[in-house]
Every structure is written in C-alpha cells, then in structure tokens.
Amino acid sequence: MKTDLKWHLRVNVKAAIARAYVRVVGTNREFSWIFFDTLLPLLGTAAYVYVYRAMDAPEEYVGFVLLGGAMTAYWMNVLWNMASNFYFERQGWNLELYFIAPISRMAILAGMAIGGMFMTTIRAGSLLVLGSMLFNVRFNVSSVPLVVLAFVLTLVALYGLGMLFSSLFLMYGREAWHTSNLLQEPVYLLSGFYFPVRALGFYIAIAASIIPLTLGMDAVRQLVFSHLHFSLFPVQVEIAGLGVLGAGLLYAAAVALDRMERAAKQEGRLTLRWQ
C-alpha cells in the first residue's frame, strides 16, 4: 500500500515535470515570443497608462495599469494555454496517450501550469520592470512576504480555475473554446485589471471576487501602493479568501475532471476530433 502510494506520487511528479519541460522548451525553441509576448504587450498596456494621463488621473494609477498588464499575461496563459489545451491535445492525438497513462489528469494540468507560470512570470516580470522604468512608477511596499503570499495564492487559485475550465474541454470542442473567448473581456472588467475593483460598486466587486484575480490584484495593489486607500477588504481577509478560493477551485477541478471524463467516455467524445 505504502509502495503503491510512493509509486503513484513518483509517476505523477515525473509526468508533471515532463509536461512542464515540454512547455518551457517548446516556447524557447522559437524566440518570437520575446517580441510578441513581452514587447508588444507592454505597448498595449502603455495605452491604458496614456488613457489615465489624458484624463489627468493621479500618477499612482499608472502603477495600477502596469500591475493589471502583468496579471493579464497570467489570465491569457490560463485561458489559452492551459484551459483550452485539452482541445489542442485531442487534436494532436496526445490526449488519448495521456489518458491511457497511469497518471492523474491533475498531474498533466499541473505540469502545464508550472511550465506556463514559469514562462508567463518572465513575460509579466519584464513587462513590470520595463514599464516601471519607462513610466517612473514608485512602489511603496508594506510587506514583501505578504506580497509574495498574496501573489502565490492568486496564481494557485487562478490556475485552479484554469483546471476547472479544462474539464469542459474533455467533453466539448468549440463550445468550450468560445466560452473561454467569452470570458476574456468580462474578466478584465470585473477583476479591475486597470482600476481598483471597488469602483464597480461594493456588491458587484464582491460578486466578482469569485474570480481569483479580483481579490489577488486588490491585495497586491494594497501591499505595493500602501499609501493609497481604495481596498475592497483588508489584505488579511483577501489573502484568506484567496486561500479558500484556491483550495475550493482545485477540489472542484478534480471533481469536474473526473465527472467530465466519465461523461465524455460514455458519449464517446473523449477522442472525438474536430468537434
């Protein structure tokens, strides 16, 4: 029993590492991403900086935008390189090979998440550093450990949400794809990528807190712009909320993956290409 558990642990860790390796090596094999994923998004984010400047907004808002721009990279990664990845894996004949292997589906997704996070952190980090230099943003960090904690919990919850979405792709094809597409802009709006989420009104902001980015960005903004007052909840509450969200989403993802896989196998859609 103990050996079995050890074997399961080893095989799942190895599978996750291998999947993450593919993601990282695959991206780095073509350097076009440096231009398309780092420099160009910086310009896109800069547009919102100039919007605030055109409105004569306080300079601190520039920092909001940069942080939002950096988190956009993670949101895009979760939506398009993780949640929808089963769609492409099925098309590329790989999905069935993962599914006949003695590993948890969460291990494959964790591998994609780790690989994706690694590459996205480089992109988001460069955007933040370059943007801060370019627009002379001043951060007033109140607690580095809390920033790290809030950030890590945000990513755990966000990628948990990605895993939950990916279960849809076991069953559906373009329906799931368009659902991802549909979520892109509303989440930009509801999570307050470019403004403090409180501006949406207290009740809408609370409803939007189901999206991990909402609480995550609000917490990180509070911690790195500690001289401003715009919070939805105190940082400690938001961090606790992120912890609950992370655990809840990961659990929901595991259950949903299991159920969707079963349903897909019953309907014969698990290996059905060109859906």
Binding site: N94, A101, I103
Partner: peptide
C-alpha cells in the same frame, strides 16, 4: 496513422516525455 507528439520537440524528447508518464 496517428500523429501524436509535439512537433516542436525532437523525436528523443517526445519519447522521453511519454516515458515519464509511466514513471
């Protein structure tokens, strides 16, 4: 006739990946 594998990786890398799924 299947076309599994990741086109951007080498043959050896692809095979290594699939070996890792079995620990």
């Amino acid at each position: 006739g299947e076309h599994s594998g990741y086109g951007i990786l080498t043959v050896r890398e692809n095979l290594w990946l699939f070996s890792q799924l079995y620990g």
